[in-house]
Design a protein around this nucleic acid. Structure first.
Lengths: 292, 292
DNA sequence: TGTCCCCTGTGCAAATTTGAACATCAGTTG
DNA sequence: CAACTGATGTTCAAATTTGCACAGGGGACA
C-alpha cells in the first residue's frame, strides 16, 4: 500500500461524498481527486466508489478505507499537535553532558530548571567517553578547553574558569611555598593522567615541570581535587573549588593563561528548539551569579 | 497534517536510519527523501532527525512519528489485504432487487447461493420504487420490459418469460372461451394499473381491448394473479405461475410478442467484482433449469 | 596516515503531477 | 419547459516533483 496521499484523498471523498467537496477540503483541483481515486482503485483492483451524477458513494471497500483512514487522520493530527507542542514547549527529555568536575556546579541549576518546567525530565550524562551530539546522545554539552570546532555543532562561550595552584597547609609546612616559577621544579604535583590534555593549565604544568615531579595522576578531576586536599602535592583547582575548601593555600598568583574556557555546545539540529534555548538562557542567567 | 506521503517517507527513514536505505525501500531517489524530510520538518517547525555522516537518527519527535506511522503502516497493509480479498472473494453484502413477482423464483436461488458462500449476507429489496444501482442501493437488479438503457448500467438478457392468457374454469363456464382476437372485446380483463407500462403484453392488451373491458387493475403483479385465480376475468400470467395453478385454463395460445424479457442489470462499477460475477453466473445456471 | 567507501546534499534537466478551461449531465427552480 | 446550478470527466499547458550527476565529508581499515 504505497502512496498514502491517495488514501487521504479517498478518505475525504468517502467522508464528504463528492469529488468537488473533497477537492476543496484538500486544497487541490477536483481533477486531481478523480485521478487519485482512479489510481488507487486500479492498484487495489477494487472499486472504492460508485460514481453518479450527484457525487461518489463509498462501496463496502470504500467504507472500510474510510474507517481506517479516519483513525489515521486523528492520529496524525494528534501527532502533529504533540510534535509542534514539543518544539514550542519545554517537555520530554533534556539530555546534558559535561565533565564530572562540573557536576556540583551544574546539578543545582538543572534541578532548579526542572522544577520550573515540570514536564521535563533531565538526564545528566557524565562519563569517560565523550558523548556525541551528532548522534543525538545529548542536547547540550558543556565542554572545556579549546573551542570545539565540529562542523554541525553550535558553540557558545559559557564562562571562564580561573584556575589556582594550591596546596594544603600541611604540604606548605613540609615543603614550603614555591618562590617562583623556577622553583616549581623542587615541588611535587598532582595532574591529570591524560598527557595530551587540552586544558591549558595542564599544558602549562607540563612545560614548566618535569614529568617525574608529577607524582599523582588521575583521570578523574574530582579525584585530583581530593588528592590536593589530602596533601599529596600542589595541584590546580578552580575558583569555585577553592572557595569550598578555605583551608587550601594558593602557592602563587593565578595566571591568565591557565584560564580554562568552558563552552556550551549544541547540535545545530537541536539548537533552535525552545527547549534547548530555554535551558541555555537559564544556564547563562544562573552562571552570571557564579562570577565573582 | 497534510501530505501523508512525507510521513511515510519519514517513517522509513526513522525505521532504517539512513536516507539512502529508505530511498531504496520506497523506490525513489534519495534526494527525494531528503526533500520530503526537509519539507516535513519545516512544516512542523521541529527537527525530526539529527543528520550525521552515517545517517539520520530520529529525535524524540521523530521517534514519536515513527511509532504512529508504524501503526498506520500496519493498518494500511491490513486494509489493502482486506480490500483486495474483498474484491476477489464472495463476502459482505449482496444486495439484489427485483419486482415482487419474481420473489418466489429468486428467493430459493439466493438462499442456495448464500449457503454456498457462508461469508455472504444477502439483502433482497423489493418495493414500489425502483432501487437505483447508480446510488449503490443494489448490486444486482432483475428488471423486466424493454432493455434498460441507463448509461452506467451493464445489462444482460436474463431469460424470457412467456406469458399466457388464462382464466378460471368458473369464468369460462360463465363467459365461454374467446373464439379469437376479435372476440376479446366481449370479455373482461385484468391488467396492470400503470397505463403506460412497458411490458409488451400489457401494451398488446391495451391495443386489442377497450379500456372499459379492463375491469380489474392493480399495481402489484401478485395481486393481478390473485385476481385471475379468484375468477375476476382473463389475465396474463407467466409460465411458471401457470404451472403453480393447474386449474387455470389458457384461453388462447401464447404469442411470441407477449414475451416479457427479463434483464440482469448491474452497475458498471460493481459488475466486475467477483462477488457480483459469481452471483450472476450462479443465477444463470439456476435459471437454465427453469427453462422448459 | 592515507585511501576507500558509504552517506548526505545540491544544481539542473526530465518526467510526472497538477491546474484551468471546457464538455456534459442530472436535478431544480422560476 | 427552459434556464440554471452543481456535479463529474477530459484535454492540454503549467508547475511541481523527481531523478541524475556530481560534490563533499566522515568513518573504517589497512
Amino acid at each position: 500500500m504505497d502512496n498514502w496521499d491517495e488514501i487521504r484523498t479517498a478518505f475525504q471523498v468517502a467522508r464528504i461524498g463528492t469529488v468537488s467537496g473533497a477537492a476543496d477540503v484538500l486544497g487541490v483541483h477536483h481533477a486531481t481527486v478523480i485521478r487519485h481515486i482512479d489510481a488507487l482503485e486500479q492498484r487495489l483492483g477494487v472499486k472504492l466508489f460508485q460514481r453518479h451524477a450527484r457525487g461518489y458513494t463509498a462501496t463496502e471497500a470504500g467504507q472500510d478505507l474510510m474507517q481506517v483512514a479516519t483513525a489515521t487522520d486523528d492520529q496524525f493530527t494528534q501527532l502533529a499537535g504533540r510534535i509542534r507542542g514539543q518544539g514550542e514547549g519545554v517537555s520530554g527529555d533534556l539530555v546534558v553532558t559535561s565533565l564530572v568536575i562540573l557536576s556540583p556546579l551544574l546539578t543545582p541549576v538543572m534541578v532548579k530548571f526542572r522544577r520550573e518546567n515540570p514536564d521535563l525530565t533531565v538526564r545528566f550524562l557524565t562519563g569517560d567517553r565523550l558523548f556525541r551530539l551528532e548522534y543525538g546522545e545529548a542536547h547540550v554539552a558543556i565542554r572545556a578547553g579549546e573551542a570545539p570546532s565540529q562542523p554541525d555543532n553550535v558553540v557558545q562561550p559559557f564562562f571562564s574558569q580561573a584556575m589556582h595552584l594550591v596546596a594544603t597547609p600541611s604540604y606548605v609546612e613540609q615543603h614550603g611555598m614555591p618562590t617562583g616559577v623556577s622553583d616549581l621544579v623542587n615541588h611535587w604535583f598532582i595532574s591529570h593522567d591524560n598527557v595530551d590534555s587540552r586544558a591549558p593549565f595542564i599544558r602549562w604544568l607540563s612545560e614548566k615541570v618535569p614529568q617525574n615531579r608529577i607524582v599523582f595522576r588521575t583521570t578523574d578531576n574530582r579525584a585530583m581535587v581530593d588528592a590536593v586536599i589530602s596533601g599529596a602535592g600542589i595541584g590546580f583547582v578552580s575558583t569555585w573549588e577553592m572557595r569550598q575548601h578555605p583551608e587550601l593555600i594558593e602557592v602563587m598568583p593565578s595566571q591568565e593563561e591557565w584560564t580554562g574556557a568552558l563552552w556550551l555546545v549544541t547540535h545545530v539540529d537541536l539548537h533552535r528548539t525552545t527547549k534547548v534555548q530555554a535551558f541555555l538562557k537559564f544556564l547563562k542567567a544562573e552562571a552570571a551569579n557564579w562570577e565573582v
